[in-house]
Structure formats: structure tokens, C-alpha cells
Amino acid sequence: MSTVVELPVDLFKGPIEPDWCPGCGDYGVLKSVQQAAAICGVQPKDLLIVSGIGCSSNLPGFMHAYGIHSLHGRSVPVATGAHLANTDLKVVMTGGDGDGYGIGVGHFIHAMRRNLNLTYVVMDNQIYGLTTGQCSPTTTVGHRTKSTPEGNMERPINPLALAIVAGATYVARGFSGEQKHLADIIAGGIAHKGFALIDVFSPCVTYNKVNTYPWFKERVYKLEETDWNPSDAGRSLQKAFEWGDKIPLGVLYKSDQLTYEDSEPAFEQGPLVKQKLGLESKLFAELIEEMV
């Protein structure tokens, strides 16, 4: 491993200012992503931030890095393609709970199953913000939203439990109100070899009047301040269900396992993007001969 040289955070500051509502949790997440990139010493040219659609998916535009601001729910496959094309890049996906756990949940599960070397930061505000306040896959039961005026009848997805079961090898939770802590766990995810999910409580100050900063502040505690050992998937899964008066933050689960990239023969000659194009005449002749 080469030595990591930490970079100045300002290096990652983007050309335009965020357009989120004042007080939005996503400001803290943006700062943490920039700090994490700095901690990991990733040059902006080698950092690719891929998002879907939603308030939080605007994040790549506020970074100094490469970015792809893709379609609603499709950040994961777009990032997968870009990453497989150039494994020299550090690819970080950013988006919201609707984007990742709703319309994009199929891709989310399969990317974790593949244990791709990707980092996924989900700004989870338990609401659809950009479409002005409908329930999301993580909205709690009974929560009244514009689309559930009598209260939400569906149980929320548990993203951390889902991630552990689906095969992610770095599963963590952060809180926008604990910005330094969040930066550290995102940096841990970027440095981790394998799929890292970081679910972040990122309150929507406009449309979610239930899960607010004070609501979280009263409940969250940091696993790092306990004797938590994140290496046992069974115990971590149990921990993922801890919800109520006490909600854990930090790395719930971490395990070093073979990644997709470790087994892909096409990468033996280096990243695809650096390989020579086309076929040699001898190889081509062999391919033709197979069909004669």
C-alpha cells in the first residue's frame, strides 16, 4: 500500500454553491464527502461521483471531481459501468433513499451481491423532498405525508440489514449532524476494498417534521464509543434492528472478502480503459476458423 497523503478539503469544493434548502442535512454530507476524499488522498481527477435524481443527487455538481448526474434510481449501474471501465478511479455514489431504496433497489441489492469496490452514500431523509413530500421506502409507519394523509401503512426498509444480507462488506450509518464522524466513516468506506454502504440520517427540514435534527440527536450514539466489534455478520444484523430510543451510528459491519474485480479475468492486463483496442490478425483468424 502506498502512503496516503491527505489533501486540503477546499480542493474538492465545486464551482457552484449548493441549492438545497437552508438547514438541509445534505450540506453536512457534502462537506463530509469532501473531507473523506481529502482524508483518502484521492486526486479530484481520479474521483468520480455518481448520483441519480433527487435533492441529494445534485451533490456531484457541488464537488470538484468528475461526476455523472444520471437518472432516477440508476446511479448504481452507471457507477458500476464506469468503475469496471476504469478501476483506477475511486467511484462514490451519492443519492437519496427514494433513489436508492425505492426505484433503484434492484440495482442496490445486486451491486452489493457482487461486492464491487464501490462506496455508496445514501442521504436518507425518510421522505421524497424534490417532489414536495411524499412517503419514501424508509418513512416510518403512521407518518403522515402528502401521499399518506392517514399515515403511512407500509413498514420501512431497513437498509443496513438489507445490505448485510445482500453481501455488502462495509455497512455503516452516519448522521449529518455528526459531520466529522460521518467524514471518517465515508473515508473508511472509500478505503475499504469491497462494497461500502453508508446510510446517512440527513434531515429534510422542509418536508419531514418527524425525523428532525433534535429527534435524531436525542437518540443516536456512536458504536466507536462502545466496545462494538463489526466483524460478525450475525451480530451486526441484529444490531441493524436497533431502533427507537437508541439508534447506533458508525460501522456496523466490516469484512474483507474477495471483490468482483479480484476475479474478473479482463482486469489482468490493467484497467479496461488503458488496454489496446482491436484484435490481432492471428487471433481473428482463430475466431473465424471456429466457424468454418
Binding site: V78, T80, G81, A82, L84, N86, G106, H110
Partner: peptide
């Protein structure tokens, strides 16, 4: 690199991601 994806939504988005990255 040949990838069987989970559905065609993933397929086309992966291919576009790879194209954007330069392959």
C-alpha cells in the same frame, strides 16, 4: 469484461457508465 446484469435497466446504464469512463 462481460457482465450479466440484473435487468435491462442495469444493462444500458452500465454500458453508458462504461462509455462515459472511456471504453
Amino acid at each position: 469484461c462481460v457482465k450479466q446484469a440484473e435487468d435491462e435497466l442495469a444493462v444500458i446504464n452500465m454500458a453508458i457508465g462504461a462509455g462515459l469512463a472511456g471504453v
